[in-house]
Design a protein around this nucleic acid. Sequence first.
DNA 1: GTGAAAGCGCTAACAC
DNA 2: GTGTTAGCGCTTTCAC
Lengths: 327, 327
Amino acid sequence: MSDVARVAGVSLVTVSRAINEPDKVAPDTLAAVRAAVEQLGYVPNLTAGSLASNRSRIVAAIVPTISNLVFSETIEALAQTLADGGYQLLLGQSGYRAGDEATLVDTFLGRRVDGLVLTGNAQSPALRAKLKRAGVPVVQTWDLPTPPNAPIDMLVGFSNLEAGKAAAQHLIDRGHRALAFIGAEEDRSRLRLEGFRAVAAAHGIGDVQSELIRPPALIDDAGPRLAQILARRPDVTAVFCNNDLLAAGVLFECVQRGWQVPGRIAVLGFGDLAVARAASPRLSTVLIRRAEMGEHAGQMLLARLSGQSTGADLIDIGFEVVTRAST
Amino acid sequence: MSDVARVAGVSLVTVSRAINEPDKVAPDTLAAVRAAVEQLGYVPNLTAGSLASNRSRIVAAIVPTISNLVFSETIEALAQTLADGGYQLLLGQSGYRAGDEATLVDTFLGRRVDGLVLTGNAQSPALRAKLKRAGVPVVQTWDLPTPPNAPIDMLVGFSNLEAGKAAAQHLIDRGHRALAFIGAEEDRSRLRLEGFRAVAAAHGIGDVQSELIRPPALIDDAGPRLAQILARRPDVTAVFCNNDLLAAGVLFECVQRGWQVPGRIAVLGFGDLAVARAASPRLSTVLIRRAEMGEHAGQMLLARLSGQSTGADLIDIGFEVVTRAST
DNA sequence: GTGAAAGCGCTAACAC
DNA sequence: GTGTTAGCGCTTTCAC
């Protein structure tokens, strides 16, 4: 930077300003600095800038895994929104392990990230306390506060419990009473199952067969799990899959068996991934606005970081049961 | 840090050492420092550390999009490998735009990342030059050097051209002569098409129908594109899809039409995603070791960063045509 | 095994 | 509009 200053015939600060606040510099000076930057191939050291300004322009996000379209689409939108606001995304994967999440948070705090995006709101009391003490803006995603857990700071999500309830209601409305659930061994999936079971019970349906796959729950788990459910209870007529990809796997399994969907068995998905619109039959599903969630998370952070208080610190983006041909 | 030093009754350097090189500190001193850290809730500022040591312990990766299972699984493995080596991953998405890639590289260089992972090897001469000048370790992925492009530094990939050739050969071996291709408007997809066409031509097949989808190529594009191909050439008997998800879309389209696969039309996928093993019929596909690619990229960087020269700076991980039931 | 001194490359605050 | 001064919180080097 001092080389640039010397070549341009100005001081260090002026170079700094020419780069960071160009309109506070005279046009001629600006041109001279830019020429020098170009000539020398100068690349400003953002690390030094971060240290001096106490702002890193980095936001970190922690997801269970990026290899799940459901999360990757949220992250994609988040990264895009942040990039447009001049922030970079540092990515952490917890692998659904709470311990790893805590470790990641430590590292990220050490890097003095300007904001943090978390998945879910089941963080441990210790972690919540640490985050509050650190004073970093935090956005939790993919869930609403599930009592007794209050939001750590900001939040954008939907009720997984209610989504599970709506799924059950959708199937029961269509006359199904022998219900099954295929999901993952994971907080949000369990909440949906809880809601699913609650509504079933309210309709006098006590026996809801369920299969919980240890993450990652891949599409090729779906067929075998359906088979296991049917082995226990051959008369099942409707299955709620916690992910459209799993639902597609179930559809393929039905093709294999020569079963009609929804004639022999109805299939309800979750997410409204592109596969739901491409499947045959078209998949009924619980639509989640994943990209919108990432965008909201990014915008909440940007608003906070630019000193504006948005007011809306808790957004329920809801969900929607989309009825297509599979139920 | 000076608070910790005071409480522990040692100097700043000792605190630094206790944290970064614990075995170079006497056990008692170490215990005292750790107690002080704990008591004060001290979180070391890694930004300051980076500035002083000139190592950020951050590696950046640029992919076209994270919302494509093909890339996200590579990134997942990369992030995991790096994390195990004490490095974090900074993520950039180029959206398949070369300009965005260059901008991202600038920012990452500004952050003094310790390494860079790029997708493909079609970077512009200007970008290649800049990276070489910067002296950062770079790993290119997902391709072999396509002349005249030499590797920038290290590389792990496979030949997309050869993969396309193998795909054509696979279909031709099974008696197909009316071939079609569904892919994306994107470098690697185009290379595969080129190889596909070359082998077809060598067998006297001049008319290969193709549909190139503007990214992101989603599964729900597959059906309509297949329809367009068939509108132009109804007698097509085999289609090579550049992604297993697209292939699954084609399978669903065939279910819709009541067509037998491979009886009426054979379908060959790409990637060997989980969906290939779950589809009905099971999908023949070109297997790419995506996770392995991410792991290799991470290990090459770690080796370089730890001062070891691995020797192997160019890895061809190859591909494999997996024959299942759809061809 | 531990410490004192000297930066790393920038920006904040204030002066002019 | 531009410059001077004083750090940001660590690590490095070299003594001891």
